[in-house]
Simulated scan of single mutants.
Amino acid sequence: MPIIYHVTTAAEWTAAKANGYYESPSLKAEGFIHCSQDHQVAGVLERYFTGKADLVKLVIDTDKLTSRFVFEWSPSTEDTFPHVYGTINVDVVVDVIEL
């Protein structure tokens, strides 16, 4: 069970559960949902979520994803990150961790 992570707000996760899928604004803007490996989450929080509250970390089982995901190079951080090209079906989220 390969695991990736996505940080979002508790409100966005609640809406996703009601819809049956999760869709972040980046999917429309960039064509994919940004995710992380475990060791990358702290840096993502520092870069993009400083001062924000009510955050959760979605723990995603990639074996169950219905959308394609790939690892891609990010020149701004000089690291490879998982990107999900489509919505995230809620049944792939095996845990939700409050941050």
Rank of each mutant, 00 (worst) to 15 (best):
I33L: 08
S67D: 00
L27F: 09
P25D: 04
Y48F: 13
V44G: 09
G20H: 06
V41T: 09
S76I: 11
G43Q: 12
D61M: 07
V94L: 06
N89F: 00
G51W: 15
H39P: 00
L65A: 02
I88D: 04
F69A: 03
A29Q: 11
R47C: 06
S26V: 05
D79K: 11
D63V: 13
H39S: 07
K52Q: 13
S67L: 09
N89Q: 13
D91C: 05
Y48H: 09
G31A: 02
H34A: 07
K52M: 05
S24A: 15
V41I: 15
T87K: 07
G51M: 12
V93I: 15
S74L: 07
L27D: 04
V94N: 00
K64R: 14
D61W: 12
F32P: 03
I60D: 00
P82G: 06
Q37G: 01
G51L: 08
V94M: 03
T87G: 01
Y48K: 08
R68F: 07
V44R: 13
I33P: 04
T62W: 10
P82R: 01
L58D: 03
T66G: 11
E46R: 15
D63K: 12
F71M: 14
D54T: 10
D38Q: 13
E46P: 00
Q37C: 05
V84K: 01
H83E: 05
F32S: 04
T66C: 10
N89R: 04
K28P: 00
A53M: 08
V44A: 15
F32Y: 15
E78G: 01
T66K: 15
G20D: 05
V90P: 02
Y85K: 02
G43N: 12
K28S: 11
S36V: 10
P75E: 08
K28L: 09
K57T: 09
S24D: 14
I33K: 03
S36N: 13
S36Q: 09
V70W: 01
A53S: 11
E23L: 06
A29I: 08
T80Q: 07
Y85D: 02
A29G: 07
I33A: 00
F69Q: 07
T62I: 08
Q40S: 07
Q37V: 14
W73L: 11
V56H: 03
S74F: 10
D61E: 14
K57D: 00
F49Q: 01
L45N: 03
G51N: 09
A53D: 14
Q40E: 14
F81V: 05
S74A: 11
D38C: 06
S74H: 10
P75K: 07
V90D: 03
V84T: 06
P75V: 13
D54E: 10
L45R: 05
S67Q: 00
I88L: 13
L58W: 10
F71R: 11
I60K: 01
D61T: 10
V84C: 02
T50P: 06
I33V: 12
V56S: 01
D91I: 14
Q40G: 06
T77M: 10
K57W: 01
E72L: 11
S26D: 05
V93D: 01
G43H: 12
D54M: 00
I88K: 05
Q37S: 02
S26L: 12
V90K: 06
G43F: 10
A42M: 10
D63S: 15
S74V: 01
S76D: 14
Y48A: 03
I88M: 05
A29T: 05
K57G: 01
I88R: 03
S76L: 12
